[in-house]
Write a protein that binds this DNA or RNA. Structure first.
Lengths: 227, 227
DNA sequence: TAAAAAAGTTAGTCATGACTAACAAAGCAA
DNA sequence: TTGCTTTGTTAGTCATGACTAACTTTTTTA
């Protein structure tokens, strides 16, 4: 009945914490991630985080000294990468095959990423012919657990006259994603920075013959590659 | 962030109990389902079942008098049917698109049936072009929650000379399913009963030019339609 | 129909993973 | 360097959903 190969004995919560820690450490490139920061990211109390970190340390997924910064072991990191692989593959499936929109995929993928079955995810990968990127433009880790990030900077770091291509968007907020598609931006859109207003850092951009003014907050969540 | 339409506020456990109760009541056609019977079916203690039934009664999914038999309310039944719909659609997807075998689909579908998203399941249904039956031959309830059973009897109820068609198999045991495919039986196979041995009720059957002797226990789990 | 067996219930315990409140250690600023 | 603020930790509580052990009600059968 039970296929050992599918069981890594982690609860949904344990997985959530490991993935969150990975995202703070590696994706956000923070050089120090502390207990409270992780708590805030996961929207739980610092006490809960402390508790779970203790547990993950005994299981050898996390390393940290008392009052020190949090780090992932190779095994903890591998689990997080697998979760991200699963999340992005499911997002791709929902988007490409099940008519889900950009802003709808995340919530359901958050549930699907916890399904335990190696075969399921590798077959899904094969079924979609090994997609490289998810619908938000992020690279999908392969079955070997190789994690890569595409070189990208935020739109807000550009200056007047720069021309760039949209390569990815932050998938953390449904409202943001909805707005991105509403104004007509999509992956690979070519964007030209017309003006950066000093007093509030808002930016006038042009794409597909459309001109829009976006806030600094918006531009922080749009990832581009200068062309 | 949260789409109310996707949330029915039931935990995985609550869902498991409702589905189990439905399966005992309707699929096994029992006229009385008791607390201990449900406990045994779910492989938990009678105390656990009692506890959960109490909870499901306050939520109006289950009705029963003290020391009386268990029954589902319309709402409880609707939830169970939705779970069965999800389970069978996922099984169909795994079998038809992801190279899962008969005996592998159940375990993963048990997890997938708890994913909360109406859109997900209705789109999956559309993607597969509204399949009628799951890989084991059972009918898939539609989006309106209509539950039907195909007329079927067990192979063990036949007598010498009967000819029948395999319409479904009990999906409860991996070993059984594996054995069914090993000997070469598949849905729609035409089976002829050559001999019923009185002393141990074992049956000699013929199908696709193969002759096999199967036990009574085996024949109890094979569902057929006399032709 | 009375005793035994089976079925159902209750009380109390445990692990998980949340929480608050209180406290301790680090880090920063005056 | 002495406070003050931020960060981290501990203790104790709660809900969920398991469990065992003990008890009660119902059903069976001798």
């Amino acid at each position: 009945m039970t296929n050992k190969a599918n069981l890594n004995n982690l609860t949904k919560s344990e997985e959530d914490y490991l993935k969150a820690l990975f995202q703070l450490l590696i994706e956000d490139n923070s050089e120090k991630v502390g207990n409270n920061q992780l708590a805030e990211y996961l929207k739980v109390s610092p006490a809960s985080t402390n508790n779970m970190i203790k547990k993950l340390k005994t299981k050898n997924y996390v390393v940290s000294e008392k009052y020190g910064k949090l780090e992932l072991t190779d095994e903890g990191r591998a689990i997080a990468v697998r979760l991200i692989r699963k999340h992005r593959l499911w997002e791709t499936f929902l988007y490409n095959y099940l008519n889900f929109s950009w802003d709808e995929v995340h919530e359901v993928a958050e549930q699907l990423e916890h399904i335990k079955s190696y075969k399921l995810i590798d077959e899904l990968d094969r079924f979609m012919d090994f997609p490289e990127k998810d619908p938000h433009g992020e690279l999908i880790p392969n079955a070997k657990g190789e994690y890569k990030v595409i070189p990208k900077i935020t739109l807000s770091s550009l200056v007047e006259g720069d021309v760039c291509k949209l390569v990815a968007v932050n998938d953390g907020s449904v409202n943001f994603l909805r707005f991105v598609s509403e104004i007509g931006l999509a992956l690979s859109s070519e964007i030209k920075v017309l003006e950066v207003r000093e007093f509030d850092k808002s930016i006038r951009i042009q794409f597909n013959d459309t001109v829009e003014t976006v806030t600094r907050k918006f531009a922080d969540n749009v990832f581009v590659k200068v062309v």
